[in-house]
Nucleic acid binder design. Structure first.
Lengths: 239, 239
DNA sequence: TACAATTTGTCCGTATGTATC
DNA sequence: TGATACATACGGACAAATTGT
């Protein structure tokens, strides 16, 4: 363990505390790097390393030029989802996180999410869900997976509960990326799309229980698509 | 928009691609900073800024001294949970993510998790759950919340599904941190502990449906504890 | 168009701290 | 104890980008 915390870490921690504590408000401009160095009693290089840490955590953004500088970032759910997805993508290559676990997690979350979406979605949201369900897939894409908004993520968003989106869509992203690599036949996609449309219809009709049941059936039917071929990650190879 | 990507970003991206792509295996040692600089055609300072980015994303770790250097980190679920919790903690201060959303997300996930735990937990896991449920709380802690392992997180872990832990425990962490700040009376804690023990008993008995129902009741009963005081508007007091 | 001002980006050289052998 | 091989930190200099005049 690091007996002494490096200076750049102390600076980063102090600035982070000020940001999450509200002393530095979102959008606020930090002093320039030279002044920050004087304020903390460190060199500009050290300040820069601290700023890189905060930037990679999406707490600050840095731009060049006059009117440039480092600014406190506004909290952005999209970044969080991307980060979690990236971290899950790394974890899913280890024996401790199997694809089966992701599918099970999704099975616990999304049927309920579909029910909530059916109970709450307004006209615009319903339209977005229909679009995600019915959009023609670009067969030329590798694996046939269109890269526009994912149907499952759209349903999660339609619940109006940001926590569900943040929790669920990284899982969807990882699973979708896997499907993209393994490839799926066109006929299978047609079935998937049809099931999506059924769910969308239930949500549009405001029928929560039906949407929940349809989503559950859909996810169960989807399972062999993900788990076939025993892809490298499914079974821990060597103990 | 960044018209040009700074060199430290390009170096970081290239190294990250090699790490997640498997070119650099976990535990592998990177060249020292001077050699990395020569390899990428940049200075040592630039290499260091890139390494700070990767280190803050837990992709590399650096140590000092001979036999030190930068090493590719092994994927670590605990780090992921901590990061997600931190990000959620920032998001929960915005109007887009309300405490109510966290409670609802927990209500969707944890009853099912309790059922899975009841179906799967072995003797050791059951013991861990009992310990988390029955451990005496240190009343001297601010808010009376003991800082040992959280009961709800223990249940999530007991499912054996790492995805559930990664998704759920950051939510628990944020909610618990909030309770810690607002403070809870001892009598309320006694009731909470009693409910925890009931759930633990159901899990120990292998009774999935009962565990699920008890967890659901518990979460519903817990709601007013979190939502009172209108604390969830939660603007930081400006000094 | 040109030019100046401001701020980050990048480099170099040097010195210090730290862990291992 | 000392030598070695790293990361850590400093200060100064110049380049590059952005905005305004």
């Amino acid at each position: 363990m690091p007996r002494v915390r490096p200076a750049y870490r102390q600076v980063a921690d102090e600035l982070r505390a000020q940001i999450v504590g509200g002393t530095l408000a979102a959008g606020e401009r930090l002093p320039n790097e030279a002044d920050l160095g004087r304020a903390f009693g460190v060199s500009r290089s050290t300040v820069r390393e601290a700023l890189r840490v905060l930037a990679s955590q999406h707490l600050v953004e840095t731009t060049r030029g006059v009117q440039g500088g480092s600014f406190v970032s506004a909290p952005d759910p999209v970044r969080v989802v991307e980060d979690v997805g990236g971290a899950l993508g790394v974890l899913v290559m280890t024996p401790r996180l199997r694809v089966h676990d992701l599918l099970e997690a999704r099975l616990l979350l999304e049927p309920s999410a579909a029910r909530l979406a059916a109970e709450r979605a307004d006209a615009d949201t319903v339209e977005a869900i229909r679009a995600a369900a019915g959009a023609p897939r670009d067969r030329r894409e590798p694996g046939g997976v269109a890269d526009h908004l994912d149907f499952h993520t759209t349903v999660l968003t339609a619940t109006g509960n940001l926590a569900l989106t943040v929790m669920g869509s990284p899982v969807n992203d990882v699973l979708r990326a896997r499907l993209r690599r393994v490839g799926v036949a066109g006929a299978e996609w047609d079935r998937v799309d049809a099931e999506h449309r059924v769910i969308a219809d239930h949500i549009a009709a405001g029928d929560g229980p039906a949407a929940e049941a349809a989503m559950r059936d859909h996810l169960v039917a989807l399972r062999p698509l993900h788990e076939r071929d025993g892809l490298w990650t499914d079974e821990p190879a060597c103990p």
